[in-house]
Every structure is written in structure tokens, then in C-alpha cells.
């Protein structure tokens, strides 16, 4: 979350990817870093034991969020 907000402050659009279990942590970090409500992508948890197929599905979810959050509507 910190890295995405660093990029925003550098005027480069960014998106952080979190697993479901880190949603509240991401929300809190964005608030304490001065960007309350900063949007991010959420994928299933956990990643560390996911299969390659599982990782591909997670990447597909993230791609959808990348398009939604990084592009002008």
C-alpha cells in the first residue's frame, strides 16, 4: 500500500493488490498515509500456497481492477 501511495505522490497512477485478509490493514494504512479511501484491488487469500491456475485467476482479477482504477472512465 505504501509503495502505491508513494507512486501517487510522484504523480504516477498506481494500484496496490491485497488479499481479502488484508483489506482492513490496507484501509488503515491508506488513512495513516494521508489518502483515506484510496482504492485497491482485492484477490483471494492465501497466495503463498496457491496453484499456478489459482495464481492465473488472481492475476485476471487484478487486471480487471487495474483497468477500473488506473484508466479514466
Amino acid at each position: 500500500m505504501h509503495d502505491a501511495i508513494t507512486a501517487e505522490r510522484l504523480k504516477v497512477p498506481a494500484i496496490g493488490v491485497m488479499t481479502t485478509r488484508f483489506v482492513s490493514a490496507a484501509e488503515l494504512m491508506s488513512r495513516v498515509l494521508g489518502m483515506p479511501g484510496y482504492p485497491f484491488a482485492v484477490i483471494p487469500h492465501p497466495v503463498s500456497s496457491a496453484t499456478d491456475d489459482g495464481l492465473r485467476e488472481m492475476a485476471a482479477i487484478a487486471i480487471g481492477e487495474v483497468k477500473r482504477l488506473l484508466l479514466r472512465l
Binding site: 488484508f22 482492513s24 490493514a25 488503515l28 494504512m29 495513516v32
Partner: peptide, 10 residues
């Protein structure tokens, strides 16, 4: 530093 369980403390 808001290091509460479920807050910053994960």
C-alpha cells in the same frame, strides 16, 4: 502508532 490488533497489528 495505531498498532492495535486488527489495525496496524496483523
Amino acid at each position: 502508532l495505531e498498532v492495535r490488533p486488527g489495525g496496524i497489528d496483523r
